[in-house]
Simulated scan of single mutants.
Amino acid sequence: MAPPLSRGTCPEAGLDAAEIARIVPGLRSVLEPPAPVPGAEPPATADHTTGPADGHPWCAGAVVLAGRGDVVALHEAVGWAVRYRAYDEHTGRGVELPAAERVPMRPGTVFDLASLTKLFTATAAVQQIEAGVLDPERPLVAYAPGLVADPRTTLRHLLTHTSGLRPELPLHELPDAAARAARLAAEQPLPPPGAQRTYSDLNLLLTQALLEHVTGRPLDRLIADGITTPLGMTSTRFAPPADWRPRIAATEDQRRPWGKLDRGMVHGTVHDENAYAMDGVAGHAGLFSTAWDLALFAHALLTGALPLHPGLGFETARPWFMGPLAGRGAIGHTGFTGTSIVLDPDSGAFLILLANTVHPVRHTQGSGPRARAAECLARALDQPRESVEAAVP
């Protein structure tokens, strides 16, 4: 059987080559920290909930992939997968490794996906909906008594972030899985379910608990058996083995007060503290993957090989990372470590941008480079179809 995706040219993908060619230089331009001003004080690090505001590049390195239909027209890497030994909180800058010890970013580099994991958990839930196992409108307590504190909460509330639950809880501070489950189940919604949207990790942790309860299988097996293995996503998994570490992009020098744990440079294990406490398998974070594997996932969603319900799990109309594609019906998601995916169901185009923006430390990163890459893809789609096709030999 022919592979679902192949590397090809922009004309073969129906994309304007000049616009796609702008993406990589744009990423190269954000790889270096701002130059220090002579005589100026070191950058402040007052807000350690997000990290330093300056003295830090947008990312150490990135992998970008763009395509349309069955053709991947762009798949390139820039910068470094591992650049820093540590973070110096006094200067607000990373302590760089010697050049010989740095690891360059490569197209096949594996990334901690962070919240892109939510898309896989949501897709696993939608698979159970389509199989008739779950009803998104049925109260969760009808499936699992005691799963949530408010008996009105449904799966749709979880997957649309309208459950009323707060964004997160310090579950990593609790001693074991039973204590974490009890704390999650006791959490009361702030507004009642359905009243407003508040993005929350807790929603996907509860989705994980529901899936595991109704199927009797752990989340990592559900995702492997139902999504990654059938699609041939061989570089996607929770809790990657030690021999994957040389292929994985490093994340953060995780220490208090900016981090919630004192772990040093995180490299090869999940960055998210709650997922780390759950042995790396969590509904909201924990998956590791490559840009090519995510392209396989995107293609499967766009072609119907996987069920796609855009309002369940996926973000919609988010120009801050989708650029102009947000106004065309695009869907997607971002991850705290610097990952993002954008799908345009109307054209069949997809954009994957994986960056280690938290290496060597979390910071107020913004999403300008993501939005600019999406803008290039939007313009590449907007060229007259005749002119693009004329370039095909």
Rank of each mutant, 00 (worst) to 15 (best):
L343R: 03
R22W: 10
A242R: 11
S235N: 14
P175W: 11
N203E: 07
A149G: 03
R93K: 10
I331R: 06
H299N: 09
T162R: 14
D135I: 06
R180V: 08
M265L: 15
W292Q: 13
A275M: 00
D225H: 10
M1F: 13
L190Q: 10
A144I: 04
V82H: 12
A35F: 06
A242C: 08
F297A: 08
T45C: 14
P240N: 03
R385N: 07
T154E: 06
I20G: 05
G51A: 10
A35Q: 14
S340C: 14
I129D: 05
S235F: 09
P319S: 11
L134E: 03
L231M: 02
T50P: 00
C10R: 02
L301Y: 09
H172G: 05
S163E: 08
P3F: 05
A181H: 06
A295I: 07
Y87F: 15
A178K: 13
P310Y: 12
D54P: 05
G311R: 13
G338K: 02
F288Q: 04
G304K: 11
E252S: 09
V270S: 00
F297P: 04
G283R: 00
L206E: 01
E101H: 12
R83Q: 14
E76T: 11
A131E: 10
A349Q: 08
G132D: 06
R22P: 07
L325N: 09
A60Q: 00
V141D: 14
D243P: 04
P145G: 05
G332E: 02
H157I: 04
G39N: 08
V72W: 00
P175G: 03
W80T: 01
W320F: 14
R217S: 13
V64G: 03
R370F: 12
L74D: 05
T123D: 02
E41A: 15
E389I: 07
G226L: 10
Y87K: 03
L31E: 06
P191V: 08
T251I: 06
D225I: 08
P107R: 07
P98Y: 11
T316Y: 01
H90L: 13
K118Q: 06
L155Y: 02
V110D: 01
L325A: 10
P43Y: 12
E212L: 04
H271A: 04
A177I: 13
D176A: 08
P345V: 09
E252R: 01
S200G: 09
E76D: 14
M105Y: 01
H284S: 08
Q208M: 09
P189I: 02
V392N: 08
L147P: 04
R156V: 05
M322W: 01
A86V: 06
A330D: 03
P193F: 02
L31M: 12
R263F: 07
R362T: 01
P11D: 08
R22N: 09
M322G: 03
L113Y: 01
G264I: 06
A275Y: 02
A371M: 10
N274M: 06
A178T: 13
H213Q: 11
P170V: 12
G335E: 01
L261N: 10
E89T: 03
E19P: 11
E12K: 11
M233V: 11
P36S: 04
V95T: 12
T117R: 00
R245A: 12
L343H: 03
A224N: 02
V78I: 05
L296T: 04
E96R: 15
E315W: 09
